[in-house]
Design a protein around this nucleic acid. Structure first.
Lengths: 196, 196
DNA sequence: GTGTGGAAGTTGTCACTGTCAACATTGGAG
DNA sequence: CTCCAATGTTGACAGTGACAACTTCCACAC
């Protein structure tokens, strides 16, 4: 009962491309192979995307979406009641979640930042970070006009950490050592950002 | 008077590849074009490199070499006499130099970290960073057994900053704002690392 | 001198890719 | 019922990394 028209090819292509990206990184998203896996001829994709880049942008959006979701999920697991301690713990967890996602889903993570993502609601890991920093401001641990710069600093640190351990020169670091390094990075960030 | 044998093709190919990488990034290093520019047929390169990857590794080594050189050059411009202040200033300058090189030579910087560099003496930006941290230990501003973790933290932060501003979501940040963010990142790092 | 062997370059070819153009099929609006 | 625009398909082209087979040249032994 396969019709000539696929019915929902666009979505199927994005999903297949996302799987390829997860398995092999952004360069693994090969237009012709995506089409093959979707059971459709090469060039079918051109009815839905201007070029390979546009498909990759869709994958990037999904990557950022999943990253943001993973961060929110982990944040939900923070059970600390004291407001100040809670805000601090949540900031740390934000960074931890970012790095853990990158290490757990290297292909998708790299794809997420290999090109400008397609516009997409709910897809902003940056928003999660800003929210965590806003909590810190709310409990008086961070000056309000330091928030934006703090965001860039935090993001840079965890992003660089992920990049260096993923494809960079720190690739070979054993897992235990890596988590130790991450915790110390979070310590340093916390110490540098939070006045108390 | 051109001989059949080029005489120094290997070096010529590496240089051409480096220029291509500087101009267009690692993906711009196309074996056939490198050969063309070097005035030699495609496939000539295979007498000197097992595959494209091996040529790229050579380019990566040169990239890291130039990065380390740029860092050392800038460090030489730090004129502060008080030992403690000097060590601090040198650490900051290390980070500043790293980011400025990345932003100034985006293609080469990306190439430098796109693959494992060929082994090469004098090519280690990490060594420059470690030296700066050793100075901090020497003047008592950093505990000796915090050095390695501090190195990873510093490297992560500046590397991530560069990556996010180079090809990432912070690409569009205006220059003035960018330098402000960088200085605040260095402030935070300094505050988090240095006890005093 | 000479001639021979291996290093260095070349030509030819293959499978594969992204993209364009022209054609085929289909379901739905009128 | 008919036509048309959206959706897929076939075929082609230039460009790529890689392999194999051929050619040219230099260095060294004799």
């Amino acid at each position: 009962m396969t019709t000539y028209h696929h019915g929902n090819l666009r979505a199927a292509l994005i999903e297949t491309a996302t799987e390829l990206a997860s398995a092999r990184g952004p360069d693994g998203v090969v237009l012709r192979e995506v089409a093959r896996l979707a059971g459709v001829s090469h060039n079918a994709a051109y009815r839905h995307f201007a070029d390979r880049e546009e498909l990759l942008a869709e994958v990037a959006a999904i990557g950022q979406q999943r990253l943001a979701a993973a961060m929110r999920r982990r944040l939900a697991g923070v059970h600390v009641t004291d407001p100040a301690a809670r805000a601090t713990a949540r900031l740390r967890e934000t960074g931890r979640a970012y790095v853990l996602f990158a290490l757990d889903q290297p292909g998708l993570f790299r794809a997420a930042f290999s090109t400008a993502p397609a516009p997409c609601e709910d897809a902003d890991p940056y928003a999660v970070l800003l929210a965590a920093l806003d909590d810190l401001v709310a409990v008086g641990l961070l000056e309000a006009d330091h928030r934006d710069a703090a965001a860039v600093t935090c993001w840079s640190a965890v992003h660089g950490f992920a990049e260096l351990h993923l494809a960079g020169p720190l690739q070979a670091t054993p897992r235990r050592e890596r988590t130790r390094q991450l915790e110390q990075l979070l310590d340093t960030l916390q110490g540098g950002l939070i006045a108390s």
